[in-house]
Design a protein around this nucleic acid. Sequence first.
RNA 1: GCCGGUGUAGCUCAGCUGGCAGAGCGAUUCCUUCGUAAGGAAUAGGCCGAGGGUUCAAAUCCCUCCACCGGCUCCA
Length: 641
Amino acid sequence: MSEIVVTLPDGSELSVEEGATVADVAYEIGPGLGKDTVAGVVDGELVDKADPVHDGAQVVIVTDQSDEYLRVLRHTAAHVFAQALQRLHPEAKLAIGPPTDEGFYYDVTDVDLDADDLEAIEDEMREILEADLPVERELRSREEALELYEDNPYKRDILEDEAAGDEELSFYVQGDFEDLCKGPHVESTGEIGAVKLLNISSAYWRGDEDNETLTRVYGTAFESEKDLQDHMELRAEAEERDHRKLGKEMDLFSIPEVTGPGLPLYHPNGKKILSELSGFAESLNVDAGYEPVETPHLFRTELWKQSGHYDNYVDDMFLLDVNDEEYGLKPMNCPGHATIFDQHSWSYRDLPVRYFEDGKVYRKEQRGELSGLSRVWSFTIDDGHLFCRPEQIEAEIRQVMDSIYEVLDTFGLEAHVALATRPEKSVGSDEIWEQSETQLRAVLDNQNVDYDLEPGDGAFYGPKIDFAFEDALGRKWDGPTVQVDFNMPERFDLTYTGEDNEEHRPVMIHRALYGSYERFFMVLIEHFDGKFPLWLAPEQVRVLPISDDQLGYAHRVKNELGDFRVSVEDRSWTLGRKIREAQDDNVPYMLVVGEDEAEAGTISVRDRQEREEQDVAVEAFREHLDAEYGEKRLEPDFLAD
RNA sequence: GCCGGUGUAGCUCAGCUGGCAGAGCGAUUCCUUCGUAAGGAAUAGGCCGAGGGUUCAAAUCCCUCCACCGGCUCCA
């Protein structure tokens, strides 16, 4: 019997007999581990403990202590759902039911389900958990499987596609239920402590809109009721800080039906925040050598044909007929900026030339994709385009990355970095794509940035580095982006004169620090839970007179605070009520002024973290505000000890 | 676009099997002038998302449309 060698997570190597399974490897490490083994991860793929390992494999043993255990458990929960469904609705046909990051889903068909059905199914699932049915793996022949799934086109699809080569097919059986499944699963349904069905939606078979629609039921499962409850509380918390809810409560923005879908209106409170954001971006851009420009919202389609948008992006564009000529609302700002560049002749000494604009763009997204500020029809990009010589690319990209990291730092945000490469639908030669992808990779590698590779996710005109923020729900959202573009200069025939007195083609780089203001605003609302730092807060200070007698003094205090966004609470409420309202409005600082303060010319300061201090000199507080605002501190800290 | 859900006062929502449209918060007015998270009273406020149909009668039942919410990537 020959031996093979596998690598364990600590880097050590282990020899086992050829044909050994994951479980065999675990027993080889130690009998205790062998007994506890639930599944394995071989070369990054979660597999059943009965699956064989191959020579040179990276093997991780999964026990009920592993992170992957929950995934295995949820996969079994998906089977429990299917079992319960088939007990109550024998006519239902099963398609696929994998685990997800949050739980699991199962796609089914030939059955109509509503919320009441889910409850009944959930009850049935609990019975199955209580019955503690053993989950057993069985191997069947291809003929057997085909016969079993005679009436199920989806399972047959799987047999002919994913499992095409296999003659032995694995089934998992629990009680009266069996399912074609690669696994792995937990050993018995009793290991699942809690299940919950969350919602019903639909999905296309294999995610392809040309295929038929399946009913998808989402659920989640945990080891214990407590874990489930914690999870549900987290969901509720995330819902509480939903930007759509806070946006309404704080009067930041609205998307009324009458203005059309995905076309947000910014109210004065929201605009104050946007203006601060815009000012910050402008200062970073000006420091980095960018010059502000401005372009209209509408261009002749000639321009979009020249840029390539008309060929590649027309389905997402709003087109208009004006006096028998076709115009298009701009979906991107780059053609306008390229055209500005093209109005001069340039020397190599002039480069890089850097333009930026808060440019409003319009993209006709599918209606079902629109959602709050995260997906809209009209949005504003803090869009910069720079034109440089090829040898300047790396330095320019590094400078852009520095600005992006300054932004992340300022807001206390985390981001995931991804390098997106050539998509199927693209313009430009293979050489050009390869050259630009190599340049981006070089910058990332030289700066030791952790990044994911996203093949095929680039723009049609070039590869890009994308930053994704993580929001309160753990969803990832597009944020800053840096894109190299060798195509646009070609299409616009942009040139500069080199040292050799010959014409050369500049390289164009697209970049945004925030991404879009809309989406960045959304991320910030949820990130801060409406409690914006002083520099962003629409209302920075509210003066609360104890009685109406101090209204005059309250206004004098407001005037002494100069340009800060200060309001005076002039409603005849009790002090307790005034504080409650200010607290609910997330105002960073409340200044209480009563008879004592008016006489002494002082203020009593309270912040939204409920700290307070009396007998404060107005001048000292104003100086603090200047510093806190100037340094963009994340929390009000006048009262910090 | 597709599947499921929702649409009633400025906001949050109640209104079951058809029978005079409700509550809380907010707003307005009056009283109260208050020391660190809701003082009291009164008043106003509605094309029940839009259009069509069934019915003596529709917020409620049926059809069409619109908007919003969740989902439509994570491979048995």
